[in-house]
Design a protein around this nucleic acid. Structure first.
Length: 520
RNA sequence: GCGGGAGUAGCUCAGUGGUAGAGCGUCAGCCUUCCAAGCUGAAUGUCGCGGGUUCAAGUCCCGUCUCCCGCUCCA
């Protein structure tokens, strides 16, 4: 990480208007709607020339800071990290092992009151035989006799009658009409009408491998990159010299058929993740969880999210995922997006996933206990636990855009994108003050020299003010301008984006100046 | 998924059932010695898409897609 993280809280400014940011992103080529000429497609976005540069800077910084050159771990040793790049389509068994197929392919019913979720085909209701369409119904989980009995008692009490089985009948929940839902009391609820209709939660994109479309050819686009890492755990152990504790990192696309894509790129159906599975001894989960939590929080600050818009939020126990119920904890690193303000939206989750995934794969692939890791030092076998920092590359890019967007009525452009120099898509603009008198020749030469090391743009046309304004909207931190003095004393002016200040530096020191300011 | 709003040039928008418009931006030329200056010119439109009504639809009606806002949802 090049820039030190600061802890000084910045004041919370008024949220920017999202439509203004979206308009700028389109106008300047950061982000376009996918398939726009055909009317678009909901939940898919393309990155334009500036956007791809910004996102690539984010991913490159992550890879460099987490994989190539991470800081020392809590034990004082250099972190052991390696990378992989796995396929998007994997053997379907992977998703059975991970729990993505099965639990979420069947129609599910949610309870608004208790927040519980039930498989619709596992629910039944108790209702009076002489139901006239207005009697209360009690839902219970089929096969759970205790709950069924309790439902009967509650119902009888409600109707101020003695419970007798022949006065009531059991109907499958799935046989109920939509209009009946308002009088159904959920298994864990007190009030009627809190259950939703059965809904299919098949949030994975389905496809077929091979030309034949039959049941055996069904495959899924991965909903997370993590499983590719788990599935290759043994391969990495066997082919490298890493030993616990170590991490495997991956950047790649993932796909979720979101119910409601919203808020620009925030909830896209195709998105890119930057994930680490860090494998540890089970008894060290606490310290590694704390380590990653702090490291990841610090990292986001180091690339420009320095203000009060970035927070670290520990999850409550009841919102934990199925794989993290017991463990050191789960937290989100969240950003106050304009569309979530005053609330926050998730940028990254850091979770203690326990040994859930490795165990499940060991079980499903049939190798079982043989897949346990052998710890030479301790002379014992175990399934390593996992701390997973899982960040959204698109959400991160969006946060950088939101953070950078700074309206400034005093400038010609009206807005300036104040990217951290390391993230800026274009590091410097190179201009001849006027496009004649030997200036363009000098600026072209400088451009040729710098472009080998930095993302720079040469722009000789139109008025100088117009060119500065364009660079403000692109978020370019520096502009170097060749004027008539350059021809006599070999100096150029440096125009600084955020302060609008100008100073003269030697023409042959421009590369060193940039290297010092932005690294590289 | 529900309710509300919007969609006309790259952007912001005007457009009364009767020839498709403006400003800005973009591009070219001239001019211009530091912040979208000026002058001249140019390019850019399936009026979101599909039906319908009409002699005639950007305009009225129906459907649909996309975006925005509020709920709902988010393994």
């Amino acid at each position: 990480m090049t820039a030190p993280a600061t802890d000084s809280p910045a004041p919370i400014r008024d949220p920017i208007r999202m439509e203004d940011l979206v308009a700028l992103c389109r106008r300047r080529g950061f982000i376009f709607q996918s398939s726009e000429i055909y009317g678009g497609i909901n939940g898919f976005w393309d990155y334009g020339p500036l956007g791809v540069a910004l996102k690539r800077n984010l991913k490159d910084a992550w890879w460099k800071d987490m994989v190539l050159c991470p800081p020392d771990g809590p034990d004082g040793e250099p972190l052991s990290m390696v990378g992989v790049d796995c396929t998007i389509i994997m053997n379907s068994r992977v998703w059975e092992a991970s729990g993505h197929v099965g639990g979420f392919n069947d129609p599910m019913v949610d309870c608004r009151e208790s927040k519980a979720r039930y498989r619709a085909d596992h629910l039944a209701v108790l209702v009076a035989r002489e139901d006239d369409g207005s009697r209360r119904m009690m839902a219970f989980i089929e096969g759970d006799d205790a709950q069924r009995e309790k439902a009967g008692k509650v119902l009888a009490k409600y109707e101020r009658a003695e419970f007798s089985p022949d006065r009531y009948m059991v109907r499958p929940f799935t046989s109920l009409a939509r209009t009946d839902l308002t009088r159904v009391v959920g298994p864990d609820a007190k009030e009627p009408g809190t259950l939703t209709e059965p809904r299919a939660f098949s949030l994975m994109f389905k496809t077929n491998v091979g030309a034949l479309e039959d049941a055996s050819s069904i495959a899924y686009l991965r909903p997370e990159t993590a499983q590719g890492i788990f599935a290759n755990f043994q391969n990495v152990l066997d082919s490298t010299r890493v030993r616990v504790p170590f991490g495997i990192a991956q950047i790649g696309k993932a796909f979720r058929n979101e119910v409601t894509p919203r808020n620009f790129t925030f909830r896209s159906r195709e998105f890119e993740q930057m994930e680490i599975e860090f494998f540890i001894r089970p008894d060290s989960a606490g310290e590694w969880y704390a380590f990653w939590r702090e490291l990841r929080h610090r990292w986001w600050r180091s690339i420009g999210l320095t203000g009060a818009n970035l927070v670290l939020r520990e999850h409550d126990r009841d919102e934990l995922a199925h794989y993290a119920k017991e463990g050191a904890g789960t937290c989100d690193i969240e950003y106050r997006f304009p569309f979530t303000a005053p609330g926050f939206g998730e940028l990254e989750g850091v979770a203690h996933r326990s040994d859930f995934d490795l165990r499940r794969h060991a079980e499903f692939c049939g190798k079982g206990e043989k897949m346990r890791y052998f710890d030479q030092e301790k002379n014992e076998r175990y399934f390593p636990h996992v701390i997973e920092p899982s960040a959204g590359a698109d959400r991160g890019t969006l946060a950088l855009l939101c953070e950078a967007y700074t309206p400034d009525p005093s400038r010609p452009s009206g807005v300036v994108m104040k990217f951290h120099p390391r993230m800026a898509p274009v590091k410097a603009g190179i201009f001849p003050l006027v496009n004649k008198d030997g200036m363009p020749e000098v600026s072209e030469r400088l451009h040729r020299e710098l472009r080998a090391r930095f993302a720079v743009e040469h722009d000789p046309k139109q008025s100088i003010g117009k060119r500065y304004a364009r660079m403000d909207e692109a978020g370019t931190p520096y502009c170097f301008t060749i004027d008539s003095d350059t021809l006599t004393n070999q100096t150029v002016t440096v125009r600084e984006r955020d302060t609008l200040s100008q100073e003269r530096i030697a023409l042959d020191k421009v590369g060193a100046f940039l290297a010092e300011k932005i690294g590289g």
